[in-house]
Structures are given as C-alpha cells and as structure tokens.
Design a protein around this nucleic acid. Sequence first.
DNA 1: TCATTAAATTGTT
DNA 2: AACAATTTAATGA
Length: 229
Amino acid sequence: MNSLSEQLRASRWARMIAAEQMQRVEAEVFEQQCPAGTAVCRKGEPADAWIGVLEGLVKINAVSADGKSVTFTGVPAGGWLGEGSLLKNEPRRYDVVALRDSRIARMPRATFEWLLDSSIGFNRFLLEQLNERLGQFIGMVEYDRLLDTDARVARYLAEMFNPILYPGFSSQIRISQEELGYLTGISRQRVNQALQALDKLGLIRVGYAGIEILDAEQLRAFGSSPPGC
DNA sequence: TCATTAAATTGTT
DNA sequence: AACAATTTAATGA
C-alpha cells in the first residue's frame, strides 16, 4: 500500500510546485477512509478542503427536490475535485459519494489558498483542470440530449481516459458494469448491451470486472457522428 | 501448488 | 428484478 506522501508526490499538481511548498502540503494534507456508499462531502456543507481520491472511486451528484439523483461525473483514484466551491468561497453545491471503499485526501482550505497565492504552477494546474471539466460538461449536455445510450457509454469510457483529469489511467479500466450504470445513469442491463455493441465494433474489449480501451479516438468520436452516417 | 468454497460480476429472461 | 453461469479471491490441505 502506498503511503499518503508518496501518492501526493505522484499527483500531477505536485510536480508543478516547488519542493519546499510540497513539504508544507505533505504536512497538512490528511487522509480519510470512506466505505462504499458513504458521503465524502454533502451539498450545503462549508467547503473546507480540496479533495483527492487516493484509492477507489467516487461520484459527484446532485439530488433534486423530488429525490431524483443525477450523476455528473465519476472521479477515480488520482483525481482531485472540489476546487470550484473553494475558489468561490461558497458551500458545496453537490454531493460526493464513494462508490467503492475509498481513501480520500483532504487539503485544508488554508493550504489550498496558500498554494494559490504562492505557486504559479499550481494555478496553471487548476486552470487546466477547470478547462477540461468545462469541456467535459459541455460535451455531456450534448450527449445527454442528442445521443443514444451506446454513444453515451462510449463517451463516458473515453472520458475515463482523460489524462488531464484522471492521470495515470492505463487502457485497462477496472470498473464493474454496475458501477458504470451508477455513473452514467443507465441501467446495468443497458450498460451491458452497450458494452457488447462497442466490443463488436472493436473499440473496447469487455472482460471480467473491467474494460480495456482499444481505440480511444473512435470512442470519443462515436458521439459526433451517430451510427449509420 | 491444487482443490474447494464463498463472493462478486456478468449475461439472460 | 430475479436467476443462472462465470470469474475471482480466500481457505486449507
């Protein structure tokens, strides 16, 4: 098992800040266990920390007044989230829930703001991350409205590949079809169908408790031109 | 190391 | 949603 500092040093933003800054970060970031199904943070809570996923998988979702749950995105190990609420100094706007047993890192608000004030590299990282997320969400609106289910699953898998948001992801994605269902808001059965269709097309290979990406380019493009064109 | 069992995940109705 | 089949992980000889 990797230690907290090792994993912090391996994160993408850690390479963009100075060594002495990293020392303070390592001293102040702490770790937390989140069993599957528990909340990492809830909507409405004050945003007191930046959140990193060290191990496991979490989803960001909102619950409407009538109890419907909408998942915006999943964040696997290596991803960081929650900078939006920290930057705007407002309460959390979404729920973050662990899908698997997860180890979560928390960087206190003070540390986060100090980095923001003192490190150009850190600012650059945040800029890139925010930009990626913006693109991700714009794409999501398009897909949700225009595309069929197969294409949504294809896009989602391509997303898990995003090297900016989710670094260190190999072409082997360890995720069950049930988890994919939670993340995409599609039933497990339908996810299964979509995966098999994509497998037939040679874009991915479906295996036990995981998926291998064979052609990320085409996966991403799958949505742009619906089948049959 | 191999066989047996339990648990997780997938494929189908 | 429920069921059976398949794969992985765990256990003990």
